[in-house]
């Protein structure tokens, strides 16, 4: 393997890792706060991408792309916030909420997918970010949009970490995640905080969707693959800390890039699943996990 090929594969793995981190963090924020697994996460990615595509149709140029991304993220935050009250909140005091949430989030996912199909049709689309710049890395030219997606993903993750660790609302959210009763006794509106968590998950999914939609073609059901990848990342890394799925995402991204290079597109998922099963056997709480599950 020539050194420039190596650098190219490595960088594309890291770029992939940034997107996976963005998606997996959304999944793990919901899992750690609401205690439910959100099967609609992939549909959030897809809807976010389509909303951005729609806006970018009437807003040209790189500024239009930025506007489309921002509006899509804001829209998806509101969407997730409201959706929580429809599909999670009614069951919060039910003893079998985990199972009920599997069903309601799967239902939401299917409704969103079909809604996308209804509105935008089944034909594949691609968001044009209008960024033709290329950056040279030791003789390897990397597309500007790749680097932009990595930078934005890292910034968004850092922003989210600061929000959770430093802001009063973020701290209240972590408190509600760790001990719901104690948070209620401090006067917090736990349902509102949970809705914010769901909104944040949808917003990060949308941001990932915007970049996926500008790197490859999208169709109404393309969210299934991101959902699968985030699932692998979350299981692989564990959710002991905000950062554990992030590390895992970069490892998975790099492993995937190299497997695609060496084994081809069809075998790459098998490698990831084998890796995930190995981790499940050796360290079931995830590579960076402990038995705690916190935000």
């Amino acid at each position: 393997m020539a050194i420039d090929t190596f650098i190219f594969v490595l960088i594309s793995g890291i770029v992939l890792g940034g997107l996976y981190a963005l998606m997996a963090v959304g999944l793990s924020v919901v899992w750690t706060t609401l205690d439910v697994f959100n099967f609609a996460h992939g549909a959030f990615v897809a809807l976010g991408a389509y909303v951005a595509w729609q806006i970018s149709q009437s807003a040209p140029g790189p500024a239009g792309f930025a506007l489309a991304a921002a509006l899509s993220v804001a829209f998806m935050f509101a969407f997730g916030f409201c959706l929580h009250f429809g599909i999670i909140k009614p069951f919060e005091r039910s003893p079998n909420i985990v199972l009920l949430a599997v069903i309601t989030t799967l239902a939401a996912s299917s409704i969103i997918e079909n809604g996308i199909q209804l509105v935008w049709g089944p034909r594949e689309k691609q968001i044009d970010p209008n960024i033709d710049m290329r950056v040279d890395f030791g003789g390897v030219a990397i597309a500007g949009i790749d680097l932009l997606s990595l930078a934005v993903a890292l910034l968004a993750l850092a922003g989210l970490a600061v929000f959770l660790r430093r802001s009063a609302t973020g701290r209240a959210m972590r408190a509600a995640a760790q001990n719901r009763e104690a948070a209620e006794l401090m006067g917090f509106n736990v349902a509102f905080l949970f809705a914010i968590a769901f909104g944040i998950a949808a917003a990060t999914a949308a941001l990932a969707g915007v970049f996926i939609g500008s790197l490859r073609f999208i169709n109404p059901s393309f969210g299934a693959d991101p959902l699968m990848k985030s699932l692998i990342v979350v299981i692989f890394g564990g959710v002991a800390q905000f950062t554990s799925p992030i590390y895992a995402a970069f490892i998975i991204g790099i492993v995937e890039a190299f497997s695609i290079y060496f084994l081809g597109l069809y075998w790459a998922p098998a490698v990831l699943f084998a890796l995930m099963i190995a981790v499940l056997m050796i360290k079931p709480e995830g590579l960076f996990g402990n038995r705690q599950k916190t935000l």
Partner: peptide
């Protein structure tokens, strides 16, 4: 809580992964 009736739970585990400072920072929210 808003009315000013504050209950300190028996054996309260509070928020295991937060620091004392963080907990005391959000405590006066009410």
């Amino acid at each position: 809580v808003r009315a000013g009736l504050i209950y300190v739970m028996q054996g309260n585990l509070l928020f295991p992964e937060m620091t004392v400072d963080e907990v005391l920072h959000i405590a006066p929210s009410a």
